[in-house]
């Protein structure tokens, strides 16, 4: 269904603000924050495919972000002496993370709700432990000291270096992630995902192969994280296991829930708030988490359905007497 008129305007306004943003930013630091917003919004849209569309509560999403970052680092740094070009590495990383999504998704297919959440949380922790420990006996991940000296993105002889350049690259990826999400949402695959979220048994009897559909959701969500991981590695020029802690999974999940699960614009707004607010409160370093936590609690009480919800949950129930 077409979104209401005001929402369309908000979307256009946000898009325009995003394009001219760097010109208005007070300094390079804030352009960096904006780049992080785009990066995290892309990740959140990926998690939204799994949690928002298919209703599969994944608490280990950061694993795919980590796998994506490290695969990029393997293929474009001095670590293994491979320096493949950016636009060759990113598709490889996307395929690798999609496959990892299938591998992690397959054993969890029979699990639902809380049980699925706990197992995916476990997979997230396993990934972190592998990253931190796989420097012995053969050094694969660099252990706790990570991998440094990663190649920046380069296209046609031009190498990205300034935050503004990264920002526009990340913004373009976010735009593609949004288009992909919209197309999926209104397709037979997206309808199948949502049907599984609403009632898995009814979905089966409607002719949906729920095994295939769930695996597609895991792989699709993970591939968004592959793009995000490549970007993080090439932007930081280094990757460390500490980038992929459990708290990151929760942070990305909060972005999805904050704006309204399943709502695409809401997810982007959620990512914007959750990246920006901690920066705003940086001056009150000591109270930052306190205020931030309080805001989340107030929001959950006042608007448990998320900031933006357009699926008509506020609509009146039809009169029983027809």
């Amino acid at each position: 269904m077409a979104p209401p008129g005001w929402l369309r305007w908000v979307a256009w306004a946000l898009g325009l603000a995003a394009v001219v943003g760097p010109l208005l930013a007070p300094n390079d630091y804030w352009i960096g924050v904006m780049a992080r917003i785009c990066l995290y919004a892309t990740l959140a849209l990926g998690l939204n495919v799994v949690v928002g569309f298919a209703g599969l509560l994944d608490l280990g999403y950061v694993a795919f972000f980590g796998i994506g970052s490290y695969v990029y680092a393997f293929l474009a740094s001095g670590h293994f002496g491979l320096h493949l070009p950016f636009f060759v590495v990113v598709p490889i990383v996307v395929v690798a993370t999609a496959v990892s999504g299938l591998l992690i998704g397959a054993p969890t297919l029979r699990l639902r709700g809380d049980y699925l959440a706990i197992v995916t949380l476990g997979f997230g922790e396993i990934t972190y432990l592998l990253l931190i420990n796989l420097d012995r006996p053969v050094n694969i991940t660099g252990g706790p000291s990570g991998i440094i000296g990663i190649d920046p993105p380069a296209l046609a002889g031009f190498t990205l270096s300034r935050n503004t350049e990264y920002y526009y690259l990340f913004l373009a990826a976010l735009a593609l992630a949004l288009i992909a999400s919209v197309r999926l949402r209104h397709s037979r695959v997206g309808w199948a995902w949502q049907a599984i979220r609403e009632d898995e048994l009814a979905a089966k009897t409607m002719g949906i192969n729920t095994t295939v559909a769930k695996l597609q959701a895991f792989a699709m969500g993970a591939s968004f994280a592959g793009v995000g991981g490549s970007f993080l590695a090439s932007w930081q020029r280094s990757v460390f296991p500490e980038n992929f802690l459990f708290t990151e999974s929760i942070n990305i999940l909060a972005m999805v829930i904050l704006g309204g699960t399943g709502n695409l614009l809401g997810v982007v707004v959620g990512a914007t708030l959750l990246v920006t607010l901690p920066e705003v409160f940086r001056d009150f370093q000591r109270y930052r988490l306190l205020v931030f936590g309080l805001m989340l609690m107030v929001l959950m009480v006042v608007r448990p359905q998320g900031l933006l919800v357009t699926d008509g949950r506020r609509e009146e129930q039809e009169d029983q007497a027809v």
Partner: peptide, 11 residues
């Protein structure tokens, strides 16, 4: 959703 098994579009 009901038309799922009568359609073919891939991702």
């Amino acid at each position: 959703v009901g038309t799922h098994c009568r359609t073919r579009a891939g991702i």
